[in-house]
Simulated assay, not measured.
Amino acid sequence: MTADEHGGDPARTGPGRDPERVVALETATVTNRLRQGHAVLTVTGELDVYSAPGLRDLLTELIETTRGGDLICDMSQVRFFDSTSVGVLVGAHHRLRPHPERTLRVVAADGPVRTTLHLTGLDRTFHWCASLQEALHTAGTTRPAGIP
């Protein structure tokens, strides 16, 4: 995994804005920032066997280092989503279990992420949002049934 850090870039920071961290994976790019006290990851590109380990590492780091707030994965710009990536989301969900005040929210109104998780039956596990605005608005308020 290679990282392209933009935390100090004035175009990405300033009054009222949290710094962004951009991580370039093999076949995807992940932008990470705090919004309204919630960790938000925006994923673009393809999530496959090459990029999934980097996403897993980033999610694990965020779960371990951020205190409070939900974990929001905006996957609306993901063009490909394979079984390795399914495992990454399920793993993140499990790592959040010791923190019942937090939940994993997935933003994907349609597309390969929503289709894949629907076909596997995992769409009932995550809290789905059609937009990042919806995820931020509902963050901290509702919990999906989830995987036991």
Rank of each mutant, 00 (worst) to 15 (best):
G7A: 15
P10V: 15
T13H: 13
T13G: 11
R17A: 15
E20D: 11
R21A: 15
V23T: 12
V23Q: 06
V23E: 02
L25K: 04
T27D: 08
T27C: 09
A28M: 02
T29L: 09
V30L: 07
V30E: 00
N32T: 15
L34Y: 07
R35C: 12
Q36G: 12
G37F: 02
L41C: 08
T42L: 02
V43T: 01
G45Q: 00
E46K: 13
E46F: 12
R56D: 00
R56M: 02
L58G: 03
L59A: 04
T60D: 00
E61M: 05
L62F: 03
E64P: 05
T66K: 07
R67M: 09
C73Q: 04
C73I: 15
D74R: 09
M75L: 15
S76W: 03
V78M: 05
R79S: 13
F80L: 07
F81L: 06
D82T: 14
T84R: 10
S85M: 06
S85G: 13
V86P: 04
V86T: 14
G87D: 03
L89W: 01
H93Q: 12
L96Q: 02
E101F: 11
T103Q: 02
T103V: 12
L104T: 09
V106F: 05
V106S: 01
V107S: 04
A109L: 05
G111P: 02
P112Y: 00
V113L: 01
V113C: 01
V113D: 00
T115C: 03
T115F: 09
T116R: 00
H118Y: 10
H118K: 12
L119M: 10
G121F: 09
L122I: 13
R124S: 13
W128H: 07
S131L: 04
L132R: 00
E134P: 07
L136W: 07
H137V: 14
T138L: 12
G140L: 04
T141Y: 08
T142D: 06
P144L: 10
G146R: 01
